[in-house]
């Protein structure tokens, strides 16, 4: 199925092997337990929208 195999390389979605490699490198660099990484990034992911929402609503109220 040459057509599908070509389509299968599509750019929109990253190559699984590539992603696996990135994760391994990330683990080497940060050198902490996966749970710690998840917690740290989760805090960032939650803090970002909460901060945006809080500041924006405060700015609206102030004006």
């Amino acid at each position: 199925m040459p057509l599908l195999s070509i389509a299968g390389h599509h750019s929109d979605v990253s190559d699984p092997t590539l992603l696996q490699w990135i994760v391994e490198k990330f683990t080497d660099v940060v050198n902490v337990a996966p749970l710690v990484v998840v917690i740290i990034i989760a805090i960032i992911v939650v803090a970002m929208p909460v901060a945006i929402l809080t500041l924006a609503l405060r700015a609206r109220r102030a004006s």
């Binding site: 990135i22 994760v23 996966p34 990484v37 998840v38 990034i41 960032i44 992911v45």
Partner: peptide, 13 residues
Amino acid sequence: MLLVPFLAYIMLL
């Protein structure tokens, strides 16, 4: 840059 490792680790756990 950030979400890919985040989701990969969640999947690992």
